[in-house]
């Protein structure tokens, strides 16, 4: 793995620089997005047992938040080389996502996103997470209310991969990325479940205990417990674990080679660029 050690420091400047203003926009948007993911845990009703209908307008508001971040990140213009690499990796991710459809529980979406976020930086990872999911949804005519949630969650995964400590190289880097991939797989599943939980199971109506569904006005712990059982029963044991295992395996088997390829492309793009 000496090639990795040599190239580990090759990319020091992220492809899509996060200026302080972009970081502020990203932080605010993440807060707004997290509020819309976690709303069942935050709802505070005046009278216990008030009926709460799911806020359907979040389904329109969340895309606005995502688009604002994308507009901000590309506000200074995106370099043609960065854009081309972004386009290629988006296409690869869309293909990888298309492969999943037939194989329940085996998902290849995230390993390339994690590796690309690691090499090209946090801003690039965020945009790649958004464009990958959007492109694959467009190709399969799968644009639905779930898409903004998926886009934001996978954008966070790409962002987080770019924020991992830079100094770690070699085998330690692969180990770190595998650990991150596993955590990301479970967190993604958890977030997506949280976003669909009140919609799929319904909101409990007063005097009508809904079993595992969200009860507005109940203490946070009780709702968390209900959600925990729901997510454990429906996906943590099956889909999420499948995703985590595929992520880990793909990063172990393909990670070193792909990291080298991506870093070589980054170096070449830099070499070709005119002196500024």
């Amino acid at each position: 793995m000496s090639a990795l050690d040599l190239t580990g420091r090759a990319v020091t400047r992220p492809a899509l620089a996060l200026r302080p203003r972009s970081a502020a926009v990203l932080g605010l948007a993440s807060v707004a997005g997290l509020l819309m993911f976690c709303w069942p845990l935050l709802v505070h009703v005046r009278v216990h047992g008030d009926t709460v209908s799911p806020p359907f307008f979040f389904l329109v508001l969340l895309p606005v938040v995502v688009l604002v971040v994308l507009a901000e990140l590309s506000e200074g213009g995106i370099d043609a080389k960065v854009l081309a690499v972004l386009g290629v990796l988006t296409a690869c991710n869309a293909v990888l996502r298309g492969l999943d459809a037939g194989l329940a529980g085996i998902e290849f979406v995230f390993f390339l996103l994690v590796l690309a976020g690691r090499v090209y930086g946090a801003g690039f990872g965020f945009v790649l997470g958004c464009t990958s999911l959007f492109a694959s949804a467009l190709l399969t005519a799968g644009v639905g209310p779930w898409l903004p949630y998926q886009m934001l969650a996978s954008a966070w995964i790409g962002l987080g991969a770019g924020l991992l400590p830079r100094r770690v190289t070699g085998r330690a880097e692969i180990a770190m990325l595998v650990a991150y991939g596993v955590v990301a797989a479970y967190v993604f599943g958890l977030l997506m479940n949280l976003s669909s939980w009140p919609f799929l199971l319904g909101v409990a109506v007063p005097g009508h205990d809904g079993g595992l569904s969200f009860v507005p006005g109940d203490p946070l712990v009780d709702n968390l417990h209900r959600f925990g059982v729901y997510t454990l029963l429906t996906s943590t044991g099956s889909f999420d674990t499948g995703r985590a295992i595929t992520n880990a395996l793909a990063i172990v088997v393909l990670g070193p080679a792909i990291l080298t390829t991506l870093r070589r492309a980054a170096r070449r793009a830099r070499l070709d660029s005119p002196a500024q």
Binding site: S74, A84, L86, A135, L138, L139
Partner: peptide
């Protein structure tokens, strides 16, 4: 038509839209 939708994205998303166009064209 998703291809036409991409073409009529607002200018603020010009780069991001171009990225998706590149991705779709490269498949």
């Amino acid at each position: 038509n998703p291809k036409r939708l991409l073409k009529s994205l607002p200018p603020a998303l010009y780069e991001v839209g171009t990225t998706v166009v590149v991705a779709v064209a490269i498949l």
